[in-house]
Design a protein around this nucleic acid. Structure first.
Length: 324
DNA sequence: AATCCAGGCAACCGCTCCGAC
DNA sequence: TGTCGGAGCGGTTGCCTGGAT
């Protein structure tokens, strides 16, 4: 038995907003605010729109100081680093970019930035298949059978495979579905765990990388954000709270240490050499990386590529349970 | 000039969260 | 403590536009 719809679908207008509708909505909110009830708002104004639609229109388009398009390199790097760190939490990412909306950032990532970062993906897959046919059997199977996974899952899996390259000394170890069947992307669907807590609990025991990541190069997430201001907001802090669904310990409880006392998130990185075959970002980005004194990921030189990979893999672990 | 196709983006859908009762 | 309903979020859809053929 589903929920009652939030509005009368039959009598609600859909599709693009007209300038008149925009004007009505903006004028009303400028004068009276939203009144804390989006559902009732369209009736007050006389708009034949769903309240949710009004809210979306206001937040994404009519709200003052909204910026559209023209993302700067700095914004690119912030988006990239946050996506790697926390995944597709667009609202949290948007909170770090004044004037940007979550929808804008989401669209920008899906249409441009992601492609930029995955630019070398195909080429690298070809190289990998020549050098390590055994290890890439699963990857090749994915390429041949995209229907097995959704496009997004496949894409994340491809990113994941790149991270495995980053962790090359152990990749064949933890990529082995026999050793880690519960967490293998192609096998995890065969594992039935009744509730999310059980999934999270089971992930806590997954430490394939724990054997080599404990070194002393701690960084503060705040420093990732160009050292200007803490990258986390109250929302981020909330999202990092296991009770709120984000589990910082997903597979990496010893790598991610949440210090609630100081309200700073510490990540632990390790050092290793970046080679062409282990690089997952595009040629374009790599060129920039080599030609600039600071990291192309922004001024956060403390965020080495290893950390990028580590946190992205953690994020992948998150994705895994969401897709189950 | 007409058609096709891919990219970009606004908007919708359905789900979860969370506060009020 | 449980239920209800609004708010918020992320994924997805579908339309529009511009470039290629």
């Amino acid at each position: 038995m589903g929920r009652a719809p939030c509005c009368d679908k039959a009598n609600v207008k859909k599709g693009p907003w007209s300038p008149e509708e925009d004007g009505k909505l903006k004028d009303y909110i400028d004068k009276y605010g939203t009144g804390g009830n989006w559902i009732a708002l369209p009736q007050k104004i006389g708009l034949k729109r769903c309240g949710k639609s009004c809210r979306l229109r206001w937040l994404n388009y009519l709200r003052p100081n909204i910026k559209h398009g023209g993302f700067s390199e700095e914004e690119d790097s912030i988006i990239l680093r946050l996506y790697i760190s926390i995944g597709s939490r667009w609202s949290i990412i948007a909170a770090q970019l004044p004037g940007r909306t979550d929808n804008d950032i989401k669209n920008y990532w899906n249409t441009k930035l992601k492609k930029k970062m995955l630019g070398r993906q195909k080429q690298m897959n070809c190289q990998d298949s020549l050098t390590d046919s055994n290890e890439n059997t699963i990857s090749n199977n994915n390429n041949k059978s995209p229907q097995i996974l959704s496009n997004s899952a496949l894409e994340r899996l491809q990113l994941h495979m790149q991270i495995q390259n980053l962790q090359s000394p152990f990749s064949s170890f933890y990529n082995n579905p026999i050793l880690w069947p519960k967490f293998h992307p192609l096998l995890q669907n065969t594992t039935t765990i009744p509730d999310q807590n059980a999934k999270l609990a089971s992930q806590e025991s997954f430490h394939p990388l724990g054997v080599n990541v404990h070194q002393n190069n701690s960084i503060k997430l705040a420093e990732i954000n160009n050292g200007v201001s803490p990258v986390y907001s109250e929302n981020v802090e909330q999202s990092l709270n296991p009770a709120q669904g984000f589990h910082p310990n997903c597979g990496f409880s010893q790598d991610l240490q949440l210090d609630n006392g100081s309200k700073e998130l510490f990540l632990v990185s390790n050092d290793f050499e970046i080679t062409n075959s282990s690089r997952w970002w595009s040629e374009e980005v790599e060129l920039e990386r080599k030609t600039t004194s600071s990291s192309p990921w922004g001024s956060a030189s403390v965020l080495d590529q290893t950390t990028e990979g580590m946190v992205m893999l953690q994020d992948y672990a998150q994705m895994s349970y969401h897709s189950m």
